[in-house]
Design a protein around this nucleic acid. Structure first.
Length: 536
RNA sequence: GGCGAUGUAGCUCAGUCUGGUUAGAGCGAGGGAUUCAUAAACCCUAGGUCGGCGGUUCGAGUCCGCCCAUCGCCA
C-alpha cells in the first residue's frame, strides 16, 4: 500500500457523524452526535492535528419518495429542503464541519459504484437468494425478530406476513468473522464504550451470516437510489450506500491522507452496522480500519423516553429556546457534560440544566473570572500585574497545577473521554477560587507594602484562568474567546494547547477587562424557555 | 425465548477484577464564617441495612448461589 495511505496518525484527525435520515427533522439526537463531532474536531485542532470533520444526510430511502409525493414535490426537491434544515440547525450550533455529504450527490454515487465493483471482483459480493418475511402492505421485509414480535403479521395492516424469496446480492460477512474478532481483541478501544464492545463481541460469537446488499428495483418505480453495477434490476441497499459515505467523501487525491478515521461517532441504534458490517466491508476493500467506533446512548426528557406518541421530542426550536435564554455555549456545555456518552441514557431535565449551568458556569468559571478581573481592575487599574518571575507562591506551584490540567485534558481527549477533556478547565478554575480564598489578596490589598505579593497572586489567578479558558474553548468557543479577549489573549483560531497552554503566556501590563458577567446566574424558579421556531 | 448488563448518600456516579481501619466524589440541601466576586468562593454537616435472602471466610459493597427490579442487544 502506498505511503500516502499510511498517514502519520498523530498528525491527522478524521472524525465523522452518521449521515442523518433526510426525512427527519433535526432534533436533540442529531444535534448531540454532531456536537460531539464538533467537540472532538475542536479538541483535535487545539492539539495541533490536521482535522477533517464530516457530517451529512442519508437520502436514498424509499420513504423519501413517498414523502416527497405526499408534499407534491420531487424526491430531490424534498431532500434539498430537509437537508437544508439540518444545515441550518448545525450552523446555529456553530458546528465547524469541513464537508456535508449527501448520498444523492454524484461524487458519492460514482464512488459507491466503484466500491461495489471492487467487492464483486474480489468475490466479497456475490449473487444469491434472499428469503424472509415480507409485509405486502408496506412492501418491505421484516427481520426475524420483528416478525416474531409482531406475531408474523404486519405491524401496520395486521395482514399475515408472507414468506418470500428473491434473487439478491450478498456481502460475504461470514468470511470476516475471525479477522474481525481478532481485530477487536487486539484493539480494545475499537468499539467504545466498553459495554457496547462486549455486546458486539457477544453477538459476533454467535456467528455472522452473509447480508443482502441490494433490493430488487420494481419496474417502473421512481429511480431513487444507486443501481447495482451492470444490473439495473437491483438497487444498493440504503444502509450500505450510506456507510460508504465515510470513505467516498475522503476518497480524493487531496483528502486521501485523512483515512482511516480517528473515530466514527454514532448512536447505539446503528452500532451493528458500524461495528461489524462496515469494518468487514473495509477489510474486503483492503482499506485500513477506523481507529475507534464510539456509540453513545440516548437523551430522555424529564425522566421520560421521547416518543412521537408522547409528543415530547426535544426538537430544534426547543434547543434554540435554551440557547437564546442561557447562551449557545451554555447549551453546548450542558449537552457535552451531562449527555449520554456512556452506556446509560441521560436526562434532559430543566432543573438539571439550571443546576449544571449555575454550578459549572455561573458560580464556577464565570465567577472566578469575574473576581480576578475585578481585583486587577481595582488594585492595578486594569493592567495585568507583573509577578517578576515568581511562579510558586504559598505552596501553590502554578506551572505544575496548570500543566496538570492541560495534561488531564490531553489524555482524556486521547482516550475519547470528550467531556472530561473540557471539564479539566472547570477544575482548574476551582483551583483559582481555592487559591484566592487561601491567600486573601483582598486583604493584602489593604497593605501598600505588600503590593508585590498582591501582583504575584493576581497574575497567577489571571494566568490560570487564561489556561482554563483555553481548555474549555472546544466546548464553548464563543464565550471562551470572549473571556480570553478580556485577558488580552489573541483569538483562538490558531491556538495550540501545548504552546498556548504553557505557563507564562499572559503578558504583564496588558489590559484586563472586567466586563459583564460571562454567565449570569440562572433563576431556578423561572419556567423553561419557550421554543423558538425557525424562519422556514 | 437467547445473550449480556445494571441496582452504592435526594440526584449523577466512583469503588467490586487483586475480600480487611470510621464506604467516597461532584451536584443539591442544612448550618457557619467571610467579602475580591454573579447572595458567588470557602469551612462543617448529610448518619446511605452498598436491591433482597442465603453461603464461603477470622473478616464481604468486594467471592459463590438463588430471588426481585430496571435496562441493552438479538442482523
Amino acid at each position: 500500500m502506498p505511503a500516502a495511505q499510511h498517514p502519520d496518525q498523530t498528525r491527522t484527525y478524521y472524525v465523522t457523524t452518521p449521515i442523518y435520515y433526510v426525512n427527519d427533522r433535526p432534533h436533540i439526537g442529531h444535534c448531540y452526535t454532531t456536537l460531539l463531532g464538533d467537540l472532538a474536531a475542536r479538541l483535535a485542532r487545539l492539539a495541533g492535528r490536521d482535522v477533517f470533520f464530516l457530517t451529512g444526510t442519508d437520502e436514498h430511502a424509499e420513504k423519501v419518495v413517498s414523502s416527497a409525493a405526499a408534499h407534491g414535490v420531487t424526491p430531490i426537491q424534498w431532500a434539498d429542503r430537509n437537508a437544508a434544515a439540518f444545515q441550518e440547525a448545525f450552523r446555529f450550533f456553530d458546528f465547524g464541519f469541513d464537508d456535508f455529504i449527501r448520498t444523492t450527490q454524484r461524487r458519492h454515487i460514482e464512488k459507491v459504484e466503484a466500491y461495489i465493483r471492487r467487492l464483486q471482483a474480489s468475490g466479497a459480493i456475490y449473487e444469491g437468494d434472499y428469503e424472509g418475511w415480507w409485509d405486502e402492505s408496506q412492501e418491505e421485509y421484516l427481520t426475524e425478530t420483528t416478525a416474531r414480535e409482531a406475531d408474523f403479521k404486519s405491524p401496520v395492516s395486521k395482514k399475515p406476513l408472507v414468506r418470500r424469496r428473491e434473487r439478491n446480492y450478498f456481502f460475504r460477512l461470514s468470511a470476516f468473522e475471525d479477522r474481525l474478532l481478532a481485530h477487536m481483541e487486539a484493539n480494545p478501544g475499537f468499539i467504545q464504550p466498553e459495554a457496547r464492545r462486549n455486546e458486539v463481541i457477544g453477538r459476533i460469537r454467535q456467528g455472522l451470516q452473509d447480508v443482502p446488499v441490494s433490493r430488487a428495483a420494481e419496474p417502473g418505480s421512481t429511480p431513487w437510489g444507486i443501481l447495482m453495477p451492470d444490473d439495473p434490476g437491483h438497487r444498493v441497499y440504503v444502509w450500505i450506500d450510506a456507510l460508504f459515505n465515510y470513505l467516498s467523501t475522503i476518497d480524493t487525491p487531496e483528502r486521501r491522507g485523512y483515512w482511516p478515521p480517528a473515530v466514527h461517532l454514532l448512536g447505539k441504534d446503528i452500532l451493528w452496522f458500524h461495528a461489524v458490517i462496515w469494518p468487514c466491508m473495509l477489510m474486503a476493500l483492503d482499506e485500513p480500519l477506523p481507529r475507534a467506533i464510539y456509540a453513545h446512548s440516548w437523551w430522555i426528557r424529564e425522566g421520560q423516553k421521547m416518543s412521537k406518541s408522547l409528543g415530547n421530542f426535544l426538537d430544534f426550536p426547543t434547543l434554540r429556546g435554551y440557547a437564546e435564554a442561557y447562551s449557545l455555549d451554555a447549551l453546548r456545555w450542558f449537552l457535552i457534560t451531562q449527555g449520554p456518552l456512556g452506556a446509560t441514557d441521560a436526562d434532559f431535565a430543566h432543573a438539571r440544566f439550571i443546576e449544571t449551568y449555575n454550578a459549572d458556569l455561573a458560580n464556577g468559571v464565570g465567577n472566578a473570572a469575574s473576581r480576578v478581573a475585578n481585583m486587577i481592575d481595582k488594585y492595578f487599574d486594569g493592567a495585568c500585574p507583573d509577578p517578576k518571575g515568581i511562579t510558586n507562591h504559598a505552596g501553590h506551584d502554578w506551572p505544575a497545577i496548570a500543566g496538570g490540567a492541560v495534561n488531564a485534558s490531553k489524555s482524556a481527549f486521547e482516550s475519547l473521554e470528550l467531556a472530561a477533556a473540557v471539564e479539566a478547565g472547570v477544575a482548574l478554575s476551582r483551583r483559582v477560587d481555592g487559591y484566592i480564598n487561601a491567600t486573601e489578596p483582598f486583604k493584602i490589598a489593604k497593605d501598600p507594602a505588600r503590593k508585590d505579593e498582591l501582583a504575584v497572586i493576581l497574575y497567577h489567578c489571571a494566568e490560570a484562568i487564561r489556561i482554563a479558558a483555553l481548555i474549555l474553548s472546544p466546548a464553548m468557543p464563543t464565550k471562551m474567546a470572549d473571556l480570553l479577549g478580556r485577558l488580552g489573549a489573541p483569538d483562538l483560531s490558531a491556538a495550540r494547547l501545548d504552546r498556548d497552554g504553557q505557563w507564562g503566556g499572559l503578558r504583564p501590563g496588558v489590559k484586563v477587562v472586567k466586563g459583564e458577567a460571562l454567565f449570569p446566574r440562572a433563576d431556578a424558579e423561572a419556567p423553561p424557555p419557550e421554543p423558538i421556531a425557525g424562519e422556514d
